[in-house]
Design a protein around this nucleic acid. Structure first.
Length: 403
RNA sequence: GCCUCUGUAGCUUAGCGGUGGAGCGGUCGGCUGUUAACCGACAGGUCACCAGUUCGAUCCUGGUCAGAGGCG
Protein backbone atom coordinates (compact mmCIF):
# COMPACT_ATOMS: atom_id res chain seq x y z
CA UNK A 1 0.00 0.00 0.00
CA UNK A 2 1.22 3.44 -0.84
CA UNK A 3 -0.82 5.20 1.85
CA UNK A 4 -1.14 4.63 5.61
CA UNK A 5 -3.37 6.52 7.99
CA UNK A 6 -1.94 7.03 11.47
CA UNK A 7 -4.35 9.37 13.21
CA UNK A 8 -7.90 10.53 12.58
CA UNK A 9 -9.70 13.44 14.14
CA UNK A 10 -13.18 13.84 12.77
CA UNK A 11 -12.72 13.66 9.02
CA UNK A 12 -9.19 15.01 9.25
CA UNK A 13 -6.33 12.55 9.27
CA UNK A 14 -2.58 12.25 9.42
CA UNK A 15 -0.99 9.68 7.15
CA UNK A 16 2.00 8.71 5.07
CA UNK A 17 2.14 8.65 1.32
CA UNK A 18 4.95 6.40 0.13
CA UNK A 19 6.44 7.15 -3.27
CA UNK A 20 9.56 6.05 -5.11
CA UNK A 21 11.34 9.12 -3.72
CA UNK A 22 10.31 8.86 -0.11
CA UNK A 23 7.49 9.37 2.30
CA UNK A 24 5.26 12.40 2.40
CA UNK A 25 3.40 13.01 5.62
CA UNK A 26 -0.18 14.11 5.10
CA UNK A 27 -1.88 16.51 5.09
CA UNK A 28 0.67 18.35 2.99
CA UNK A 29 0.97 21.30 0.64
CA UNK A 30 2.97 21.23 -2.59
CA UNK A 31 4.60 24.33 -4.03
CA UNK A 32 4.10 24.55 -7.78
CA UNK A 33 7.00 24.16 -10.19
CA UNK A 34 5.21 24.05 -13.53
CA UNK A 35 8.31 24.76 -15.55
CA UNK A 36 10.57 22.70 -13.31
CA UNK A 37 11.22 25.48 -10.86
CA UNK A 38 9.47 26.79 -7.80
CA UNK A 39 10.02 30.36 -8.92
CA UNK A 40 12.98 32.00 -7.17
CA UNK A 41 13.98 28.85 -5.26
CA UNK A 42 16.30 25.89 -5.66
CA UNK A 43 15.51 22.32 -4.72
CA UNK A 44 17.59 22.57 -1.56
CA UNK A 45 15.60 25.65 -0.48
CA UNK A 46 12.35 23.75 -0.88
CA UNK A 47 13.66 20.91 1.25
CA UNK A 48 15.01 23.32 3.84
CA UNK A 49 11.56 24.85 4.08
CA UNK A 50 10.27 21.43 5.08
CA UNK A 51 8.42 20.41 1.94
CA UNK A 52 8.50 16.74 1.03
CA UNK A 53 6.97 17.19 -2.39
CA UNK A 54 6.27 19.61 -5.23
CA UNK A 55 4.25 19.46 -8.43
CA UNK A 56 5.43 20.13 -11.96
CA UNK A 57 3.49 20.12 -15.22
CA UNK A 58 4.02 17.69 -18.07
CA UNK A 59 2.26 19.81 -20.68
CA UNK A 60 4.22 22.94 -19.87
CA UNK A 61 7.49 20.98 -19.78
CA UNK A 62 6.61 19.47 -23.15
CA UNK A 63 6.56 22.97 -24.64
CA UNK A 64 9.89 23.83 -23.15
CA UNK A 65 12.43 22.33 -22.92
CA UNK A 66 10.60 19.25 -24.27
CA UNK A 67 9.98 15.90 -22.61
CA UNK A 68 12.89 14.29 -24.49
CA UNK A 69 15.33 16.87 -23.14
CA UNK A 70 14.28 16.30 -19.54
CA UNK A 71 14.52 12.59 -20.15
CA UNK A 72 17.99 12.91 -21.69
CA UNK A 73 19.04 14.97 -18.70
CA UNK A 74 18.19 12.11 -16.39
CA UNK A 75 14.56 12.87 -15.56
CA UNK A 76 12.81 15.61 -13.68
CA UNK A 77 14.47 14.95 -10.30
CA UNK A 78 17.95 15.15 -11.70
CA UNK A 79 17.12 18.00 -14.08
CA UNK A 80 15.93 20.32 -11.34
CA UNK A 81 18.05 18.79 -8.59
CA UNK A 82 15.21 17.89 -6.24
CA UNK A 83 15.31 14.38 -4.87
CA UNK A 84 12.06 14.24 -2.93
CA UNK A 85 8.60 13.41 -4.23
CA UNK A 86 7.51 15.10 -7.43
CA UNK A 87 3.96 15.06 -8.72
CA UNK A 88 3.31 15.99 -12.34
CA UNK A 89 0.08 17.43 -13.60
CA UNK A 90 -1.30 15.99 -16.79
CA UNK A 91 -2.05 19.12 -18.78
CA UNK A 92 -5.78 18.75 -18.23
CA UNK A 93 -6.01 22.04 -16.39
CA UNK A 94 -4.62 23.89 -19.39
CA UNK A 95 -7.86 23.31 -21.30
CA UNK A 96 -9.08 26.28 -19.26
CA UNK A 97 -6.44 28.50 -20.80
CA UNK A 98 -7.53 30.49 -23.83
CA UNK A 99 -3.91 30.88 -24.78
CA UNK A 100 -3.37 27.13 -24.97
CA UNK A 101 -6.64 25.48 -25.97
CA UNK A 102 -7.33 24.97 -29.65
CA UNK A 103 -9.95 22.22 -29.72
CA UNK A 104 -11.34 19.52 -27.46
CA UNK A 105 -12.45 16.22 -28.92
CA UNK A 106 -13.33 12.86 -27.45
CA UNK A 107 -10.02 11.39 -28.53
CA UNK A 108 -7.95 14.18 -26.99
CA UNK A 109 -7.11 17.87 -26.93
CA UNK A 110 -5.40 20.07 -29.50
CA UNK A 111 -3.27 22.68 -27.77
CA UNK A 112 -1.33 25.52 -29.33
CA UNK A 113 1.76 27.20 -27.99
CA UNK A 114 2.91 30.79 -28.26
CA UNK A 115 4.57 30.11 -31.62
CA UNK A 116 1.49 28.84 -33.39
CA UNK A 117 2.59 25.23 -33.11
CA UNK A 118 -0.04 22.55 -32.49
CA UNK A 119 0.27 19.88 -29.80
CA UNK A 120 -2.06 16.93 -29.59
CA UNK A 121 -2.64 15.57 -26.10
CA UNK A 122 -4.43 12.34 -25.29
CA UNK A 123 -4.67 10.36 -22.06
CA UNK A 124 -2.02 8.02 -23.47
CA UNK A 125 0.31 10.84 -24.47
CA UNK A 126 0.01 12.40 -21.03
CA UNK A 127 0.78 9.10 -19.32
CA UNK A 128 3.79 8.53 -21.58
CA UNK A 129 5.08 12.03 -20.91
CA UNK A 130 4.70 11.75 -17.17
CA UNK A 131 6.41 8.38 -17.12
CA UNK A 132 9.20 9.77 -19.27
CA UNK A 133 9.66 12.70 -16.93
CA UNK A 134 10.05 10.20 -14.12
CA UNK A 135 7.80 11.89 -11.61
CA UNK A 136 6.66 9.95 -8.55
CA UNK A 137 2.97 10.64 -8.93
CA UNK A 138 1.19 11.17 -12.24
CA UNK A 139 -2.24 12.73 -12.60
CA UNK A 140 -4.88 11.55 -15.06
CA UNK A 141 -5.62 13.66 -18.11
CA UNK A 142 -9.02 15.18 -17.38
CA UNK A 143 -11.46 17.60 -18.97
CA UNK A 144 -12.12 20.63 -16.80
CA UNK A 145 -15.27 22.64 -17.44
CA UNK A 146 -15.28 26.38 -16.82
CA UNK A 147 -17.18 27.59 -13.79
CA UNK A 148 -20.74 28.66 -14.59
CA UNK A 149 -21.34 26.43 -17.61
CA UNK A 150 -24.62 24.69 -18.27
CA UNK A 151 -25.53 21.20 -17.16
CA UNK A 152 -24.88 19.60 -20.52
CA UNK A 153 -21.41 20.96 -20.75
CA UNK A 154 -20.66 19.70 -17.28
CA UNK A 155 -21.96 16.28 -18.21
CA UNK A 156 -19.86 16.20 -21.38
CA UNK A 157 -16.75 17.11 -19.43
CA UNK A 158 -17.53 14.54 -16.77
CA UNK A 159 -18.16 11.70 -19.19
CA UNK A 160 -15.04 12.53 -21.15
CA UNK A 161 -13.07 12.70 -17.92
CA UNK A 162 -14.33 9.25 -16.97
CA UNK A 163 -13.46 7.65 -20.30
CA UNK A 164 -10.08 9.30 -20.24
CA UNK A 165 -9.50 8.15 -16.67
CA UNK A 166 -10.06 4.55 -17.74
CA UNK A 167 -7.72 5.00 -20.69
CA UNK A 168 -5.10 6.57 -18.43
CA UNK A 169 -5.36 3.75 -15.95
CA UNK A 170 -5.06 1.05 -18.57
CA UNK A 171 -2.22 2.67 -20.48
CA UNK A 172 -0.34 3.63 -17.35
CA UNK A 173 -0.55 0.13 -15.93
CA UNK A 174 0.82 -1.39 -19.10
CA UNK A 175 3.61 1.11 -19.72
CA UNK A 176 4.58 1.25 -16.06
CA UNK A 177 5.17 -2.47 -16.06
CA UNK A 178 7.14 -2.38 -19.30
CA UNK A 179 9.34 0.38 -17.94
CA UNK A 180 9.64 -1.07 -14.45
CA UNK A 181 8.50 2.27 -13.07
CA UNK A 182 7.13 2.76 -9.58
CA UNK A 183 5.16 5.84 -10.51
CA UNK A 184 1.81 6.19 -8.77
CA UNK A 185 -1.29 7.42 -10.58
CA UNK A 186 -4.00 9.62 -9.09
CA UNK A 187 -7.43 9.92 -10.69
CA UNK A 188 -9.24 13.24 -10.92
CA UNK A 189 -12.98 13.69 -10.43
CA UNK A 190 -14.93 16.54 -11.99
CA UNK A 191 -18.49 17.72 -11.57
CA UNK A 192 -18.22 21.46 -11.27
CA UNK A 193 -20.23 22.82 -8.37
CA UNK A 194 -23.32 20.75 -8.85
CA UNK A 195 -23.51 18.38 -5.93
CA UNK A 196 -25.21 15.72 -8.02
CA UNK A 197 -22.61 15.82 -10.75
CA UNK A 198 -19.84 16.00 -8.21
CA UNK A 199 -21.19 12.96 -6.40
CA UNK A 200 -21.56 11.07 -9.65
CA UNK A 201 -18.06 11.82 -10.85
CA UNK A 202 -16.44 11.22 -7.51
CA UNK A 203 -18.18 7.90 -7.16
CA UNK A 204 -17.09 6.83 -10.64
CA UNK A 205 -13.47 7.89 -10.29
CA UNK A 206 -13.41 6.54 -6.76
CA UNK A 207 -14.43 3.11 -8.03
CA UNK A 208 -11.38 2.87 -10.30
CA UNK A 209 -8.16 1.54 -8.88
CA UNK A 210 -6.05 4.66 -8.49
CA UNK A 211 -3.40 5.27 -5.85
CA UNK A 212 -5.14 8.49 -4.84
CA UNK A 213 -8.10 10.62 -5.79
CA UNK A 214 -8.17 14.27 -6.70
CA UNK A 215 -11.00 16.78 -6.60
CA UNK A 216 -10.66 18.68 -9.85
CA UNK A 217 -12.47 21.59 -11.40
CA UNK A 218 -12.78 23.47 -8.14
CA UNK A 219 -11.29 26.78 -6.97
CA UNK A 220 -11.97 28.30 -10.37
CA UNK A 221 -14.42 31.03 -9.44
CA UNK A 222 -17.06 29.46 -7.21
CA UNK A 223 -17.93 30.81 -3.76
CA UNK A 224 -16.44 29.34 -0.61
CA UNK A 225 -19.77 27.83 0.33
CA UNK A 226 -20.03 26.08 -3.04
CA UNK A 227 -16.46 24.92 -2.79
CA UNK A 228 -16.78 23.35 0.63
CA UNK A 229 -20.15 21.79 -0.06
CA UNK A 230 -18.55 20.00 -2.99
CA UNK A 231 -15.48 19.07 -1.01
CA UNK A 232 -17.74 17.55 1.58
CA UNK A 233 -19.72 15.58 -1.00
CA UNK A 234 -16.52 14.33 -2.57
CA UNK A 235 -14.92 13.13 0.59
CA UNK A 236 -18.00 11.16 1.57
CA UNK A 237 -17.81 9.24 -1.68
CA UNK A 238 -14.12 8.48 -1.80
CA UNK A 239 -12.46 5.42 -0.25
CA UNK A 240 -11.24 6.18 3.24
CA UNK A 241 -7.95 4.35 2.82
CA UNK A 242 -6.67 6.36 -0.14
CA UNK A 243 -5.27 9.90 -0.19
CA UNK A 244 -7.51 12.77 -1.28
CA UNK A 245 -6.08 15.67 -3.17
CA UNK A 246 -7.85 18.99 -3.66
CA UNK A 247 -6.18 20.50 -6.69
CA UNK A 248 -5.46 24.20 -6.75
CA UNK A 249 -6.36 25.17 -3.20
CA UNK A 250 -3.72 27.23 -1.47
CA UNK A 251 -4.79 30.10 0.75
CA UNK A 252 -4.05 29.45 4.42
CA UNK A 253 -7.63 29.68 5.73
CA UNK A 254 -8.97 27.58 2.86
CA UNK A 255 -6.47 24.84 3.58
CA UNK A 256 -7.19 24.88 7.29
CA UNK A 257 -10.84 24.32 6.54
CA UNK A 258 -10.33 21.74 3.80
CA UNK A 259 -8.17 19.59 6.07
CA UNK A 260 -11.15 19.43 8.39
CA UNK A 261 -13.14 17.92 5.54
CA UNK A 262 -10.63 15.11 5.18
CA UNK A 263 -8.42 16.39 2.37
CA UNK A 264 -4.82 15.17 2.49
CA UNK A 265 -3.00 16.92 -0.36
CA UNK A 266 -2.95 20.42 -1.76
CA UNK A 267 -1.08 22.39 -4.36
CA UNK A 268 -1.39 25.98 -5.44
CA UNK A 269 0.46 28.93 -6.85
CA UNK A 270 -1.26 31.12 -4.28
CA UNK A 271 1.58 31.42 -1.74
CA UNK A 272 4.33 31.91 -4.31
CA UNK A 273 2.36 34.20 -6.58
CA UNK A 274 1.24 36.35 -3.67
CA UNK A 275 4.81 36.52 -2.42
CA UNK A 276 6.16 37.86 -5.71
CA UNK A 277 3.41 40.44 -5.79
CA UNK A 278 4.16 41.70 -2.31
CA UNK A 279 1.35 40.00 -0.42
CA UNK A 280 2.80 38.25 2.62
CA UNK A 281 1.14 35.82 5.00
CA UNK A 282 0.84 36.48 8.71
CA UNK A 283 -1.32 34.85 11.40
CA UNK A 284 -3.61 37.90 11.26
CA UNK A 285 -4.02 37.91 7.49
CA UNK A 286 -1.95 39.13 4.57
CA UNK A 287 0.04 42.32 4.52
CA UNK A 288 0.87 44.28 1.39
CA UNK A 289 4.54 44.90 1.98
CA UNK A 290 4.84 47.47 -0.81
CA UNK A 291 2.59 49.92 1.02
CA UNK A 292 4.27 53.07 2.21
CA UNK A 293 3.65 52.32 5.89
CA UNK A 294 6.35 49.66 5.68
CA UNK A 295 8.97 51.89 4.08
CA UNK A 296 10.86 52.48 7.31
CA UNK A 297 9.57 49.57 9.39
CA UNK A 298 12.45 47.74 11.04
CA UNK A 299 10.42 44.77 12.28
CA UNK A 300 10.14 41.33 10.66
CA UNK A 301 7.13 40.44 8.50
CA UNK A 302 5.58 39.25 11.73
CA UNK A 303 6.95 38.85 15.23
CA UNK A 304 7.82 35.27 16.03
CA UNK A 305 8.19 34.07 12.45
CA UNK A 306 11.09 31.62 12.30
CA UNK A 307 11.73 31.86 8.59
CA UNK A 308 15.07 32.82 7.09
CA UNK A 309 13.65 36.07 5.76
CA UNK A 310 12.14 37.20 9.06
CA UNK A 311 15.24 36.19 11.02
CA UNK A 312 17.51 38.38 8.92
CA UNK A 313 15.56 41.07 7.12
CA UNK A 314 13.18 43.89 7.92
CA UNK A 315 9.85 44.87 6.44
CA UNK A 316 11.65 47.98 5.26
CA UNK A 317 14.15 45.93 3.25
CA UNK A 318 11.43 43.73 1.73
CA UNK A 319 9.45 46.86 0.88
CA UNK A 320 12.46 48.33 -0.88
CA UNK A 321 13.42 45.16 -2.77
CA UNK A 322 9.94 44.46 -4.08
CA UNK A 323 9.29 48.06 -5.02
CA UNK A 324 12.48 48.23 -7.01
CA UNK A 325 11.94 44.80 -8.60
CA UNK A 326 15.14 43.44 -7.11
CA UNK A 327 15.35 39.71 -7.71
CA UNK A 328 16.27 39.02 -4.11
CA UNK A 329 12.90 40.40 -3.06
CA UNK A 330 11.03 37.67 -4.91
CA UNK A 331 13.19 35.05 -3.30
CA UNK A 332 12.91 36.33 0.27
CA UNK A 333 9.15 36.87 -0.04
CA UNK A 334 8.68 33.39 -1.50
CA UNK A 335 10.70 31.87 1.32
CA UNK A 336 8.50 33.60 3.85
CA UNK A 337 5.13 32.59 2.39
CA UNK A 338 6.24 29.02 1.80
CA UNK A 339 7.63 28.79 5.31
CA UNK A 340 4.26 29.98 6.56
CA UNK A 341 2.55 27.20 4.59
CA UNK A 342 5.02 24.58 5.71
CA UNK A 343 4.60 25.57 9.35
CA UNK A 344 0.83 25.66 8.99
CA UNK A 345 0.79 22.11 7.65
CA UNK A 346 3.01 20.96 10.52
CA UNK A 347 0.68 22.63 13.01
CA UNK A 348 -2.35 21.03 11.41
CA UNK A 349 -0.75 17.58 11.55
CA UNK A 350 0.18 18.07 15.17
CA UNK A 351 -3.32 19.24 16.04
CA UNK A 352 -4.82 16.17 14.37
CA UNK A 353 -2.42 13.86 16.21
CA UNK A 354 -3.57 15.37 19.48
CA UNK A 355 -7.23 15.27 18.46
CA UNK A 356 -7.36 19.05 18.60
CA UNK A 357 -8.07 19.88 15.00
CA UNK A 358 -11.29 21.75 15.67
CA UNK A 359 -9.96 24.08 18.31
CA UNK A 360 -6.82 24.71 16.29
CA UNK A 361 -8.80 25.51 13.15
CA UNK A 362 -11.28 27.76 14.89
CA UNK A 363 -8.57 29.67 16.66
CA UNK A 364 -6.49 30.00 13.50
CA UNK A 365 -9.41 31.27 11.46
CA UNK A 366 -10.52 33.68 14.13
CA UNK A 367 -7.07 35.18 14.30
CA UNK A 368 -6.52 35.19 10.54
CA UNK A 369 -9.73 37.07 9.94
CA UNK A 370 -9.27 39.41 12.87
CA UNK A 371 -7.39 41.84 10.66
CA UNK A 372 -8.64 43.37 7.46
CA UNK A 373 -8.76 40.10 5.60
CA UNK A 374 -12.16 39.45 4.09
CA UNK A 375 -14.18 36.97 6.04
CA UNK A 376 -15.74 34.38 3.83
CA UNK A 377 -16.48 31.48 6.08
CA UNK A 378 -19.82 31.12 7.66
CA UNK A 379 -20.11 27.59 8.87
CA UNK A 380 -18.73 26.50 12.16
CA UNK A 381 -16.26 23.75 11.45
CA UNK A 382 -16.87 21.94 14.69
CA UNK A 383 -20.58 21.69 14.04
CA UNK A 384 -20.00 20.74 10.49
CA UNK A 385 -18.12 17.60 11.11
CA UNK A 386 -20.07 16.41 14.10
CA UNK A 387 -22.95 15.97 11.68
CA UNK A 388 -20.76 13.93 9.41
CA UNK A 389 -21.66 10.40 10.53
CA UNK A 390 -25.34 11.14 10.34
CA UNK A 391 -25.08 12.64 6.92
CA UNK A 392 -22.90 9.86 5.68
CA UNK A 393 -25.54 7.33 6.65
CA UNK A 394 -28.28 9.39 5.10
CA UNK A 395 -26.54 9.96 1.80
CA UNK A 396 -27.81 7.81 -0.96
CA UNK A 397 -25.98 7.60 -4.19
CA UNK A 398 -27.99 8.74 -7.13
CA UNK A 399 -28.91 6.06 -9.55
CA UNK A 400 -27.28 7.24 -12.69
CA UNK A 401 -28.61 5.86 -15.91
CA UNK A 402 -25.81 7.26 -17.89
CA UNK A 403 -24.29 6.24 -21.20
C1' G B 1 23.50 91.53 -27.60
C1' C B 2 21.54 88.57 -31.88
C1' C B 3 19.58 83.87 -33.99
C1' U B 4 17.28 79.01 -33.46
C1' C B 5 14.71 75.43 -30.69
C1' U B 6 11.90 73.91 -26.39
C1' G B 7 8.11 74.79 -22.35
C1' U B 8 1.55 69.64 -21.59
C1' A B 9 0.54 65.13 -14.65
C1' G B 10 5.89 64.24 -9.71
C1' C B 11 9.23 62.41 -14.20
C1' U B 12 9.56 61.19 -19.65
C1' U B 13 6.48 62.60 -23.28
C1' A B 14 1.75 61.96 -27.49
C1' G B 15 -1.68 65.24 -29.48
C1' C B 16 -5.34 68.38 -32.22
C1' G B 17 -8.71 75.24 -33.90
C1' G B 18 -14.12 72.45 -30.72
C1' U B 19 -12.06 72.58 -23.14
C1' G B 20 -6.19 66.72 -23.27
C1' G B 21 -4.03 60.94 -23.72
C1' A B 22 0.21 57.29 -22.63
C1' G B 23 4.40 55.06 -19.96
C1' C B 24 6.88 55.29 -15.40
C1' G B 25 5.98 56.97 -10.47
C1' G B 26 1.83 57.45 -6.47
C1' U B 27 -2.52 55.22 -3.63
C1' C B 28 -5.62 50.94 -3.18
C1' G B 29 -6.97 46.12 -4.54
C1' G B 30 -6.80 41.14 -6.84
C1' C B 31 -4.05 36.72 -7.54
C1' U B 32 -5.88 29.52 -5.38
C1' G B 33 -3.95 21.73 -10.63
C1' U B 34 1.08 29.53 -13.19
C1' U B 35 3.75 30.35 -20.58
C1' A B 36 1.91 35.84 -15.42
C1' A B 37 8.81 39.74 -11.21
C1' C B 38 1.61 39.85 -13.25
C1' C B 39 -3.29 42.11 -13.67
C1' G B 40 -6.97 45.80 -12.39
C1' A B 41 -9.07 50.39 -10.26
C1' C B 42 -8.39 55.25 -8.69
C1' A B 43 -5.87 59.94 -7.96
C1' G B 44 -3.09 63.60 -10.29
C1' G B 45 -3.12 68.95 -15.67
C1' U B 46 -5.57 77.04 -14.81
C1' C B 47 -1.56 72.36 -21.62
C1' A B 48 4.84 78.37 -18.54
C1' C B 49 2.66 83.54 -18.13
C1' C B 50 0.17 88.02 -20.46
C1' A B 51 -2.38 89.99 -24.42
C1' G B 52 -4.45 89.46 -29.38
C1' U B 53 -7.01 86.82 -33.76
C1' U B 54 -11.44 83.65 -33.66
C1' C B 55 -18.15 81.94 -32.34
C1' G B 56 -14.38 79.10 -29.80
C1' A B 57 -7.16 78.80 -28.40
C1' U B 58 -3.34 73.85 -25.30
C1' C B 59 -2.89 74.47 -30.77
C1' C B 60 -2.51 80.53 -34.72
C1' U B 61 0.00 85.77 -33.81
C1' G B 62 2.83 89.15 -30.64
C1' G B 63 5.15 89.91 -26.12
C1' U B 64 7.15 88.24 -21.19
C1' C B 65 9.65 84.60 -18.35
C1' A B 66 12.54 80.05 -18.05
C1' G B 67 15.80 76.28 -20.22
C1' A B 68 19.04 74.33 -24.18
C1' G B 69 22.11 75.15 -28.41
C1' G B 70 24.58 78.43 -31.91
C1' C B 71 26.89 83.25 -33.37
C1' G B 72 29.31 87.42 -31.47
Amino acid sequence: MSFDIHYEDGLARVGSLHTASGTVTTPFFMPVASKGSVKALEGKDIEALGFESIISNSFILSLSPGIDIVQDQGGIHSFMHFSKTIFTDSGGFQVLSKDFLLKKEDCGVFFKDGHGKKHFFTPEVSMDYQLALGSDVAMTFDDVAHYGLSGKEYVDAIKRTHRWAERCLEHHKKRREELGSKQLLFGIAQGGTSKEYRRFSTHKIGSLDFDGYALGGLVIGESRDELFENVYESVLHLPREKPRYLMGLGSPPDIVRAVGYGVDCFDSIYPTSNARHGSLFTPTGRIMIKKRVFKNDSGPIFEGCECHTCKHYSRSYLHHLLRTHELLGYRLATIHNLHFMSQLMKDLREAIRKGEYTSFANSFLEQYFSGKEKKEFSSNIAMRYKEEEERKAATILLDWKQE
